[in-house]
Each structure stands twice: as structure tokens, then as C-alpha cells.
């Protein structure tokens, strides 16, 4: 009885994983297919699409914009996140629940509403739309994720380590810099990586707040309407998949190292 039900469940899980991986498995197939139409049957093997991708000037501009935005937004979100995570794990202060809930709000707010309300205000103030406005928007939506990761890191800190530093004559800032910061560094790095990944893939805010500047997702979106452009997008998608798997593995590595450092058991996932 147990063996059969277990096997049935296992078969279902394998089918489900196939469903989860279906798009990713198709991506490289079409990226190396020489046919210009994204459909079966396949034509032949080619690496042309990768070469075309490399030679595309707009794509390069979109990539450099996206990287600028993702690096700036992830650093800003993580810096702001350190303040919030430290405050919420270490101090008791009035309205704590409400204030933290408000800061975490972008996590549960439909992005279109964040984007539209910000756009209305920016246009009303006469602010020129550019990658700067996208950085501001991305910092806002990355911050709650950074705080979630950082809070775990800060809450597993042993308070007596800081107190020992005070007793040994360190100032508050000195203790933070010499004791706390190194201990939460793995958390900071995973917060940076998660924010970076979210920003790199974010479409709606970039679409409405970037003005005429392309980012990778808005460039992809603009190309999806042209059937001729799709194979290059498939090649780009393949590169992006590999890149995010590398980033994800790095984040996981730092998280585990952090856990090992504070003596926690290496369980659970990134989220």
C-alpha cells in the first residue's frame, strides 16, 4: 500500500517538474535551431542567433542600462534594508508592526499600481524619465525582499558577541563594524544577489518609468511582436538562464557559508 501510493506520488512529482521545466528545456532547442519560425519540426543546428545577439547595438545598450539599474538598485535596497532589518530585530519601538508592514507593502501590492502611481507623480512634478527613475522604483520593490533575507541574518546573531565587544571598550559603531557586520555579511551578499536578480528581470516599472531608454525586459517585450526577431530573443533567454543559475548557486553558497559561520544547520532554501 505504502509503496504503491509513494510511487504514484513520485510519478506525479516528476510530471510536475516536467511542467515546471518545459519552457527552459525548449529555450536552448529554439536558440540553436536554424529555422526562423519558433515551431516544430526543427530545421538544423546553428549558432547564428548568438552571433546576431552579440552584434546588436540596441541590445548592448539595454544590457548596460539593465546592469546599471540592477547594481544601483540592489546596493540601495540592501543599504536601506540593513537599517530596517537591524531596527526590527534588535529594537522595540512604537508602531513597529505598522511601520515594518508599510515598508514591506510593495511585496504584496500589484506592481502596475506602484508603477502607475509613481509615474503620475513624476509626470506631475515634471521629472524627466530616465534610468534614474527606474532605479528609484526598483529600489522600492527590492527593499522588502532584501529586508526579509537580512532579518533572518540579523535575528540569528548572538547578542552577547556585541556585548562582549562593548565590554572590551569598542564604541557602538566599532562593535557593529568589527563584530556584527562580518557575521551578517553572507546575508548582505544574498540580499544583494536577490535584489539584483529581481531588478534585472523586472518589466512593468522599467516599461513605464524608463522613458525612451531600453532595459533587457523592455527590449525583449518590444521584440516579441516581430516574428523575425524571436530566435535572437531565444538565444538571449538561454544566456540569461545560465546567468541566473550561476547567481542563484552563488547566493546559495554564501547562505550556507553564513549558516555554517553562525552554527546553524544547513536546511531550507533561498526564500
Amino acid at each position: 500500500m505504502k509503496a504503491t501510493s509513494g510511487r504514484g506520488l513520485q510519478a506525479y512529482v516528476i510530471l510536475y517538474l516536467l511542467f515546471l521545466y518545459a519552457p527552459i528545456l525548449l529555450l536552448p532547442i529554439f536558440a540553436f535551431n536554424s529555422g526562423t519560425v519558433i515551431a516544430f519540426p526543427l530545421q538544423g543546428f546553428t549558432t547564428d542567433w548568438f552571433a546576431q545577439m552579440w552584434g546588436n547595438a540596441t541590445l548592448r545598450r539595454a544590457l548596460s542600462n539593465s546592469l546599471t539599474i540592477a547594481v544601483s538598485a540592489s546596493i540601495l535596497a540592501t543599504c536601506l534594508g540593513v537599517f530596517a532589518a537591524r531596527a526590527s530585530t534588535r529594537y522595540v519601538f512604537p508602531l513597529k508592526g505598522g511601520l515594518m508592514g508599510f515598508i514591506m507593502l510593495p511585496m504584496v501590492l500589484p506592481e502596475i499600481i506602484v508603477a502607475m502611481s509613481l509615474l503620475v507623480v513624476l509626470l506631475g512634478l515634471g521629472v524627466q524619465l530616465s534610468i534614474l527613475t527606474v532605479i528609484v522604483g526598483h529600489t522600492l520593490i527590492c527593499m522588502p525582499y532584501a529586508i526579509a533575507v537580512l532579518s533572518t541574518a540579523f535575528s540569528s546573531l548572538d547578542r552577547s558577541l556585541e556585548e562582549a565587544a562593548y565590554d572590551l571598550g569598542e564604541t557602538k559603531w566599532g562593535a557593529f563594524r568589527l563584530v556584527t557586520l562580518p557575521l551578517v555579511m553572507p546575508g548582505i551578499i544574498s540580499a544583494l544577489l536577490i535584489s539584483f536578480t529581481i531588478s534585472l528581470d523586472e518589466f512593468i516599472i522599467a516599461f513605464f518609468l524608463a522613458g525612451n531608454e531600453p532595459t533587457l525586459p523592455t527590449y525583449i517585450f518590444s521584440q516579441l511582436r516581430f516574428p523575425r526577431a524571436i530566435p535572437v530573443i531565444m538565444a538571449l533567454g538561454t544566456v540569461l538562464v545560465i546567468l541566473s543559475i550561476v547567481l542563484l548557486a552563488l547566493g546559495e553558497y554564501f547562505r550556507r557559508r553564513g549558516n555554517a559561520r553562525i552554527g546553524a544547520k544547513p536546511t531550507g532554501g533561498l526564500l
Partner: peptide, 14 residues
């Protein structure tokens, strides 16, 4: 868990 989350980290649009 990592196996389940990997597809989620690829471009949403694609």
C-alpha cells in the same frame, strides 16, 4: 527546493 525554484529565476517575459 532549489530544483523547484530554478525555473522561477528565468526571464518572466520569455
Amino acid at each position: 527546493l532549489l530544483l523547484i525554484t530554478i525555473p522561477f529565476w528565468t526571464s518572466y517575459l520569455i
